[in-house]
Design a protein around this nucleic acid. Structure first.
Lengths: 147, 147
DNA sequence: ATATTAAAAGATAACTTTGTCTTTATTTAT
DNA sequence: ATAAATAAAGACAAAGTTATCTTTTAATAT
């Protein structure tokens, strides 16, 4: 569904929300290892999330690293997609028609529409915080390792 | 959601189902023009659909072209995804975790699962014929042109 | 101030996807 | 048989994505 970059962005964001705080930041090595992603590529991706979009925060230097503010934890998961420029794919025509709409629907439109709405709603209502909490609570996992 | 190639494949298949028959085949020029896709690239894609997977049929030479059998029209839309090797994306973990499952769910899993099931069901139950009929009946469109 | 640490920024490479063009093979019509 | 039409096959090019490595900048600790 999403690009590798966005998958890593989602995993990294959730991991940072779960493990870090402003007092206890995470380095790129720890993050990449935990979410099983290529380190340098993940570093690049995190830059997309720390800019103006501001899903995660970072500081350089000793004891620096990545963390997420309490405020940002309350952002919907879709904020990550927006920061990665991949939010539109939730809303795109499944046949790739740019004219597809209520007045000129593609033959999949009407049935696909209701699924799309659920997708959008899911990414819009779920917060980063909630996902992190599921992991802390032992109800979900984010490890991708062999064991 | 899908690659350009798969979008073109879906559009081409639906168009062929709508406009052609074994007695009245469609050339690649007509198809590419109708679905607004790059001609040579579309030709390549159609080759993927005419092989063993056999969603569409073709014959070379004068009065040759592409068409679809009545039997193939009854295939689910997912047959096109399978032929294009993109059927798995309907079933993939949204965070890209290969370990994600009922017993070890990612934090999106439980809610995303129900949406995925609807997606799979949609592509599994809708047939190529049904989509083509919607266009013939004037209830749907497949043109991507400016007007 | 200086050294150290860690992210930011930039250059580049490998791979994949998208797209084009040319040649070949096959079918039909004459 | 030959010519013409058309898809199949193959080689290639352009663009985008994924990934790595090096250099720079900023923050902290000493």
């Amino acid at each position: 569904m999403f690009s590798k970059a966005t998958e890593y962005a989602l995993r990294a964001t959730i991991y940072i929300a779960q493990k870090s705080s402003e007092e206890n930041k995470l380095g790129i090595d720890a993050i990449a290892k935990a979410i099983d992603s290529p380190k340098s590529f993940t570093a690049k991706i995190l830059q997309s999330l720390t800019g103006n979009n501001k899903v995660i925060s970072s500081v350089r230097g000793p004891n620096g690293g990545f963390y997420i503010t309490e405020k940002a934890k309350k952002l919907p998961v879709r904020a990550v997609l927006i920061a990665m420029g991949e939010s539109e794919i939730l809303d795109k025509c499944v046949l790739g028609l740019n004219k597809c709409s209520e007045v000129k629907p593609c033959p999949m439109h009407n049935q696909y529409k209701t699924i799309k709405q659920q997708l959008i709603s899911l990414f819009e209502t779920k917060t980063i915080q909630q996902l992190a909490d599921d992991i802390v609570g032992g109800d979900a996992y984010i490890s991708n390792k062999k064991n």
